[in-house]
Design a protein around this nucleic acid. Structure first.
Length: 494
RNA sequence: GGGGGCGUAGUUAAGCUGGUUAUAACGCCGGCCUGUCACGCCGGAGGCCGCGAGUUCGAGUCUCGUCGCUCCCGCCA
């Protein structure tokens, strides 16, 4: 039988009690995180939103409270009245923020009992996502989950403060709306009133940009959900939140300035990190050329090098064929990669084959010169050119992929990331914001046999490229920019 | 749409080339314990080995199917 709350009023949060409260009577409400029954005395770690404090049920202080505490189990919800005291010398717990104090309980009420939780309510749990979501209300009790919510709250506040200070209006746009052409698959909602018809949920709220812009809302933003009915990935959810920022009558520099300012403000306010402004810039072509991907991880120096010109006249038939079909040959120089065993190198084939590259060629440069199954196909001058162009030193490993440009860049770009992971050369804690500029406006869709927008259909072309729209659409660059952080696209604008 | 991996106690895992009663840790239950905080000590319970077929004298283990989860490619303006 549960006790009732009665007239008890909470006086403090568990985690907020400090040594200043010593000598005060407090009333706490919380969850039993841990019970330690030593027979004569019972300790309970009591948890609420703000943290944990140890409460003590000692029969010499209250026979009744001690008796009742024998019933306590994990996740029971209790109310406890007691005196805040300094812990006896030698029993402090430095692991706990409240580790120098405890509460001697004079009155204990069990507000609700609990079955044993299916997993421990602790910071670190090694439990499948499945189980955690099944018992979401328990998972949400974990302190580090709460921490994420607090972080998110601070972030949203920082965003609102920033834009408010810069003359932006916060708006809301509808969720039940029309399908838009191109882009992701829509989530649809059947209509009861219009039988047989459906609403689409917005893939992104930029959908409403034009109507607000032409109505004179020249600076607005929203923190808003986007819905895309596409297959999931580890870092991809079916619905996610975006900060939508829209401005009229501005130029690229202004957008970048405002955006960088926002990000710097968030990092300062939320994480107390000062970012160096302005962020670095790379064109789309440079990114593909040097990193293979349009979202390069620039935290480590390992670059793709085009060696098509050097290799195209070699006696290696595989390379000849690739080049004659319009393909390219690119390579990575992994410094010190010479220590990789033959098998370790061969295993890298698995990585590139994921991206449909057919084979990985390799050459080691050792004290005895080149070691490689394919170096015999190349002349000395070709090998010297490689050595010079790729800045090869003794002990280095050259990894080569030859195929059509899309496959080569994608495969080597991802191999580059893989090598960085397995050799540990990435500075994980470093933030490396980089703008990717000059995206192409269109790409050719082989399945649909037509040109489609790389970004979205409302993206402007660069003014100087407008003459090529009809003649050479693939050459037209867009006024579209991505901001990349830690190898993830974190922002785009157009 | 395609490919890989995993489903064993409440949880996390082990279980070899098929062979006694399916292990361990934590958790749970009972007992003891007045300074613990990963409390300790003693004892105990707990399993449709995801599901269904098949091979076999015998299946957690092999085969096929099926369901669920997970990761990747494609896809995600």
């Amino acid at each position: 039988m549960n006790d009732v709350l009665g007239s008890l009023k909470r006086s403090n949060y568990c985690g907020k009690i400090s040594e200043e409260d010593i000598g005060k009577e407090v009333v706490l409400m919380g969850w039993v995180a841990k019970r330690r029954d030593l027979g004569g005395v019972i300790f309970v770690d009591l948890r609420d939103r703000e943290g944990i404090i140890q409460i003590v049920m000692n029969p010499t202080i209250s026979e009744e409270a001690h008796e009742k505490a024998k019933e306590l189990r994990s996740e029971y919800v209790i109310a406890a009245r007691g005196m805040v005291v300094k812990r006896p010398a030698g029993t402090e717990n430095p692991e706990l923020k409240t580790g120098n104090i405890e509460v001697n309980v004079t009155e204990l009420r069990i507000l609700n009992v609990s079955k044993p939780p299916p997993f421990p309510i602790e910071e670190k749990v090694d439990i499948s996502e499945n189980i955690r979501l099944k018992y979401r209300y328990l998972d949400l009790r974990r302190p580090n989950i709460l921490k994420n919510f607090i972080l998110r709250h601070k972030l949203a506040k920082a965003v609102r403060d920033y834009f408010n200070d810069h003359g932006f209006l916060e708006v809301e746009t509808p969720f039940l709306t029309k399908s838009t052409p191109e882009g992701a698959r829509d989530y649809i909602v059947p209509s009861r009133i219009h039988l047989g018809k459906f609403y689409a949920l917005p893939q992104s709220p930029q959908l409403f940009k034009q109507i607000l812009m032409i109505s004179g809302f020249d600076r607005y933003f929203q923190i808003v959900k986007c819905f895309r009915d596409e297959d999931l990935r580890a870092d991809r959810q079916p619905e996610f939140t975006q900060i939508d920022v829209e401005m009229s009558f501005i130029d690229v520099d202004t957008i970048q300035e405002v955006t960088e300012g926002m990000i710097a403000h968030i990092f300062r306010e939320v994480m107390n990190i000062e970012l160096a402004l302005p962020f670095k810039k790379l064109t789309y072509n440079e990114a593909i050329d040097r990193y293979g991907l349009d979202r390069p991880d620039t935290r480590f120096d390992l670059f793709l090098v085009d060696i098509t010109d050097i290799m195209k006249n070699s006696k290696f038939k595989v390379f000849q064929d690739v080049v004659s079909r319009g393909g390219i040959i690119k390579a990575l120089n992994l410094p010190g990669g010479g220590r990789f065993s033959r098998k370790e190198i061969e295993d890298l084939n698995e990585i590139i084959s994921i991206y449909e590259a057919k084979g990985l060629s390799w050459m080691k440069y050792t004290e005895k010169g080149w070691t490689s199954p394919i170096s015999k196909f190349f002349s000395n001058s070709q090998l010297d050119s490689i050595k010079e162009k790729m800045k090869v030193n003794e002990g280095d490993l050259i990894l080569i992929v030859a195929d059509n440009p899309e496959i080569v860049n994608n495969a080597l770009g991802n191999l580059r990331l893989h090598l960085a992971r397995i050799t540990g050369i990435v500075e994980e804690e470093r933030y490396n914001f980089v703008w990717i500029t000059d995206f192409p406006l269109f790409e050719y869709d082989k399945e649909e046999k037509r040109y489609v927008s790389v970004h979205h259909p409302f993206t402007s072309p660069k003014e100087e490229d407008i003459p090529f729209i009809e003649s050479e659409p693939l050459k037209v660059r867009a006024k579209a920019y991505d901001l990349v952080k830690k190898q993830k696209q974190s922002l785009d604008f157009s």
